[in-house]
Write a protein that binds this DNA or RNA. Structure first.
Lengths: 252, 252
DNA sequence: GGAGGCAATTTTGTGCACAATCATGCCAAC
DNA sequence: GTTGGCATGATTGTGCACAAAATTGCCTCC
């Protein structure tokens, strides 16, 4: 009894044991994000295979994935390198972020007020995490949290496609920051995030009145992104060498 | 004399013979774009390998690439299928396009006037191509040209990163159209493109005065995207079966 | 002393073969 | 007649082995 001559509708992946690859992708991605793997670093297949205790083909697949996200560069017969954005590319990435994050903020502002408690809770929780990392001087955690914050807002905006695009842009802007940040200390913008959360939650200096600070929030986000980009020195060309084994000591 | 302990700066890929993969990606991508491969179609590795006269691993690599672009769906132990967006996903993709293409139009409007002759020439050339395809009733060419038009504008905007993102969104919106378009004929929007070109080139009904129709162009683009999305029936769930061999007869 | 070329080693690329998993058709039982 | 399980065939997943290419070190020559 053949009912369906048609193509079978794909069902969702049950995330069987493909988790191993996802783990490696995440591990390398995070290492790149928090500067343990600076731009230009060579990612040798065999080394990574040993570090993560997987076959070389698996590493190869992961590198292909990361190359699609433009976080590593694949050069034929030469191998994989942590991507090193050009100054132009860096500017493009930040402009793209402004475009998308403005839309994200607009969508959040269009949300019915007051915001759902779950949202406010997650915002406050995030604020607490950032403040804790700031007090502890945990720079790596701060970088990771900063990315997560922007992604959190994109999630609230309710467009998963935009959120995915933004995630990729955040990765790449992290790369740009790693490649072009000035030697001088920079404030890491935790204060900016605080103000943004205040504007969104309405707990800021709008002490009375129904003002939710929506327009403020959009402006704050744009100013925030401008500030981050302004902290870059789009002329430098840094590069360093690292030891893969020591960097991935805790993973594997 | 060891000068550089640092990682070697990656140079650009010379596009050696990786062109074979690019060819297959393009071939499959186009087949999906102009509906020869409807959403849900199974893409068997062995069949594709025979069709393109390459090894199965090559096909596997290509499928992984297309999966990253969300144009095919990979299901473990089941194979690859042409992606079939959900209604929600379709709406998200169109919203993302509105966000990005509004920015693109804004950037084009900020360009110094008059536009460079090369730009105008390409716009007019494209208009001619669309009109020719329209007269010939070549639906497939029209679909391809429509995508190229939006990409052309993104290129003019001068942000390659945004253009790349938009290219992916255009592919996906083509998929959404294939999955959800109403059975009734639709006008294919060549007229919209014409009006857009007029507004940009200043050859429209602003017969005199310096008005370049910039604000008009932005509005036209938004209206255009709304119209395309409005032509979809975000409830249907079509699926068909096709013969891979016959579809790729001219490629290979 | 430095530059250029050559050989050895390391690293990447690719195809093949086998293992694992899933779809299909068949048979038996209810 | 329908449902359930089972065996068979087909398809995908994975590791391995070999081929190709590049980097490195070394030697020779200028």
């Amino acid at each position: 009894m053949k009912i369906a001559l048609t193509a079978s509708p794909p069902r969702r992946s049950p995330r069987g044991r493909g988790g191993a690859e996802a783990r490696i992708v995440r591990s390398i991605g995070e290492a790149i994000a928090d500067r343990r793997l600076p731009p230009g670093t060579k990612l040798a297949e065999e080394s990574l295979a040993q570090v993560f205790s997987v076959s070389r083909e698996r590493v190869r697949k992961v590198l292909l994935l990361l190359a699609q996200r433009q976080v590593v560069t694949l050069i034929p017969n030469r191998g994989a390198f942590v991507a090193k954005p050009t100054a132009q590319e860096a500017r493009e990435v930040f402009e793209a972020r402004r475009v998308i994050e403005r839309a994200v903020m607009d969508k959040i502002c269009a949300l019915p007020r007051p915001l759902p408690p779950a949202m406010l809770a997650r915002l406050n929780d995030h604020r607490a995490q950032e403040e804790a990392a700031e007090r502890a001087g945990d720079r790596k955690a701060l970088i990771r949290l900063s990315g997560q914050f922007h992604l959190l807002l994109a999630e609230f905006a309710g467009n998963g496609t935009l959120a995915t695009i933004l995630a990729s842009l955040i990765d790449r802007s992290g790369l740009a920051i790693a490649a072009f940040e000035r030697r001088t200390a920079h404030t890491c913008s935790a204060e900016d995030h605080r103000r943004l959360i205040d504007a969104l939650a309405g707990t800021g200096d709008h002490t009375h009145g129904a003002g939710c600070g929506c327009a403020d929030a959009v402006t704050l986000m744009m100013t925030h992104l401008d500030a981050v980009e302004a902290q870059l020195d789009l002329d430098a060309t840094p590069d360093t060498a690292v030891d893969l084994k020591s960097i991935f000591a805790e993973d594997g």
